[in-house]
């Protein structure tokens, strides 16, 4: 990913209100080709409304969305042709077969003839549904429906793929397959806008993350940037035997230690960088005569950042 690349998606101060409710409040961000951007926020934060505006389903009341240089709105057919949209709920005809669903949406995105036939075959293969191509989707498992739901979004090889919570209700095996597919698509140059309730998915997939709350982007950056921006500290749990108080007093004097407390047969230290200061801390404890029984490092994560910014857990 090159910084100089032209963003594929640019959202500038987009705004949407419903009466007095401001659902999206001057949201701005961009996504580069090949980049996976995670949009995280608690329920009701404005994620889906933002996505619906970006996908051209809803008109924004203010601001601008551009996809591949084209302005996006419900009438913008050229911009929509560059977007693959995978909604949160499985949006398929259950009384049509997998291939009929793909052909239907393929036609709506402008494919026809041998191109449509070939893409349908490729998507069925990609989603592992070739053997069930002629079965009605009502007979599919939840995971199979999810895979087909994503496949429909990919039928026209879009430049920007919008995935709104694509792994909800999916078994671990299918979930892993979906995440690997998303990773592979981003590596092939596709820009991905990804929302999820699962923090580990965001941590694993997303190059950059925007945290949205009450319709506003409250923080944005890489995972590391977000943690650093919020002054995140590591936590060390060190199990000890014998008297712990001398060890507490000694470690409290170290520059790298911000705070230390003694619990039941264990010390808890808040440090700026656990990995670089671990040796010094261990030596100090050993010198006081205490015996170390175990060490556990807890680095600040996205969950903590999210909680700090929104005051809510991600699944609230």
């Amino acid at each position: 990913m090159e910084e100089a690349a032209t963003p594929l998606l640019v959202c500038s101060d987009i705004r949407k209100t419903y009466g007095d409710l401001v659902a999206v409040d001057d949201v701005s961000f961009h996504i580069l080709p090949g980049e996976t951007y995670g949009l995280l926020g608690p329920n009701g934060a404005g994620k889906t409304t933002t996505i619906n505006i970006i996908a051209g389903i809803l008109d924004a009341d203010g601001g601008e969305v551009r996809v591949a240089g084209q302005p996006m709105n419900p009438r913008a057919t050229r911009a929509k042709a560059a977007v693959g949209y995978v909604p949160q709920d499985i949006a398929l005809y259950p009384d049509l077969t997998a291939s009929e669903n793909l052909v239907f949406f393929g036609r709506l995105v402008g494919l026809s003839g041998t191109t449509l036939k070939e893409r349908t075959r490729e998507i069925l293969e990609l989603t592992g549904l070739t053997s069930r191509a002629e079965d009605r989707t009502a007979t599919f498992s939840g995971g199979m429906k999810r895979r087909l739901n994503i496949g429909i979004g990919l039928i026209h090889s879009p430049q920007l793929l919008i995935l709104d919570e694509p792994t909800v209700g999916v078994d671990p095996q299918s979930r892993n397959a979906i995440l690997e597919s998303v990773d592979a698509m981003a590596n092939n140059g596709m820009a991905v806008l990804y929302t999820t309730h699962y923090m580990e998915e965001a941590e694993r997939l997303c190059d950059r993350i925007g945290i949205i709350d009450d319709g506003k982007i409250v923080a944005e950056g890489t995972q590391r940037e977000l943690v650093e921006k919020l002054g995140g500290h590591d936590k060390l749990h060190i199990g000890i035997t014998g008297h712990g108080q001398p060890a507490v007093n000694a470690t409290a004097m170290l520059d790298c230690v911000i705070r230390v407390s003694l619990g039941d047969a264990a010390m808890e230290l808040i440090v700026s960088d656990a990995r670089s200061s671990l040796a010094e801390i261990v030596n100090t404890i050993v010198e006081t005569g205490a015996e170390i029984t175990g060490i556990e490092i807890e680095e600040p994560n996205l969950e903590a950042v999210f909680l700090h910014l929104t005051g809510k857990a991600l699944r609230d």
Binding site: Y85, L92, Y93
Partner: peptide
């Protein structure tokens, strides 16, 4: 049903006008 299943909205996300 098309509305409930989200298919109608999904059509709008394709280059297809309302």
């Amino acid at each position: 049903q098309s509305r409930q299943w989200g298919v109608s909205r999904r059509m709008l996300a394709t280059p297809t006008s309302a």
